[in-house]
């Protein structure tokens, strides 16, 4: 039993880690509390849905295009609206909240308010002894880890990645060093949004899809990011897995309705005791 929980927790953790990193990236580099995170989680699922149902294309290709679309939307949003309110953290929160709600309504209008079912990308499951792992979950977890790996690689090795890290660590000087901070902001926001949406599109086939599905992931992502340390990518990833385990552990003992209360209470307690989380501020 315990082993099943560990395994399932790990698989869930992969998605949580992916999801939380998106928030963490934007928070760490742009110092923005992005309340549209949940919206893009949802949007990822819906866009994938449209690709799969609408075009009969291979779901993996559908995911690929979903990512591209999300990146474009994210960067565009940053360029159009987000950049104008950089001066006020509080206004930014209200603004992103408004955008999140607007987006959710838009989704409700475009795709309808009813629950949708996105077919899993891979059917079936694997059984190892007493342990049962649906293929979709394995796939989701590994795609998630793969994307995170790509992200880390990108941040460490590529020129843009290095520029991003410089903007995060020495924001004032980065501009003086010739880095196009404007473009970096757009890229970072786009990336963050992609991570959220990818998580959403991987998550949706395992559960149900509905317009308001993004709020709980938003709060969970925040809990993870805060636990792992605001702005620390590594912390968020680790925190994601921890949360995956914790969620599954608690689901054993609590009714499903109450399971989600635990992350929030944890968040509350962590905020009270140690607001800086466990990892601090560096992106690695």
């Amino acid at each position: 039993m315990l082993l099943q929980i560990l395994v399932s927790g790990f698989l869930l953790g992969g998605i949580y880690a992916l999801m939380a990193s998106g928030l963490s990236l934007i928070l760490g580099v742009m110092r923005i509390v992005n309340l549209t995170h949940g919206l893009f989680f949802t949007l990822g699922a819906y866009i994938l849905f449209s690709f799969i149902i609408g075009t009969n294309v291979n779901p993996f290709i559908g995911m690929f295009f979903t990512i591209i679309v999300l990146f474009l939307i994210g960067s565009f949003l940053e360029w159009l609206i987000i950049k104008r309110i950089k001066y006020s953290e509080i206004n930014m929160m209200v603004l992103t909240l408004a955008l999140a709600i607007a987006g959710e309504e838009f989704i409700r209008i475009t795709w309808g308010p009813k629950y949708l079912h996105i077919p899993p990308l891979i059917e079936g499951e694997i059984r190892l002894g007493h342990i049962y792992m649906p293929n979709q979950r394995i796939l989701a977890c590994f795609i998630g880890l793969f994307m995170l790996f790509l992200l880390m690689f990108f941040l460490k090795k590529s020129k843009t990645g290095k520029a991003i890290r410089m903007v995060q660590q020495i924001p004032e000087t980065a501009a003086l060093m010739g880095i196009n901070v404007r473009a970096i902001s757009m890229v970072v926001f786009g990336l963050g949004v992609v991570l959220a949406g990818a998580a959403g599109s991987l998550w949706a086939p395992m559960y149900i899809t509905y317009p308001a599905m993004g709020w709980t992931p938003l709060l969970i992502s925040f809990a993870i990011v805060i636990l792992g340390g605001m702005g620390s990518l590594g912390g968020s990833i680790l925190g994601g897995f921890l949360f995956g385990f914790a969620t599954l552990l608690t689901s054993m003992y609590l009714s499903s309705g109450l399971v989600n209360v635990i992350p929030f209470i944890t968040l509350f307690i962590v905020l009270l005791i140690r607001p800086s989380g466990f990892f601090g501020k560096d992106i690695f």
């Binding site: 929160m93 709060l219 925040f222 805060i226 209470i265 509350f268 905020l271 607001p275």
Partner: peptide
């Protein structure tokens, strides 16, 4: 004790808890 963003999230979480 909490900075603006953290506190806002805490309150959001709190209302989500009560809702649940």
């Amino acid at each position: 004790r909490l900075r603006g963003a953290y506190y806002a999230m805490a309150t959001l979480a709190f209302s989500a808890v009560l809702n649940t």
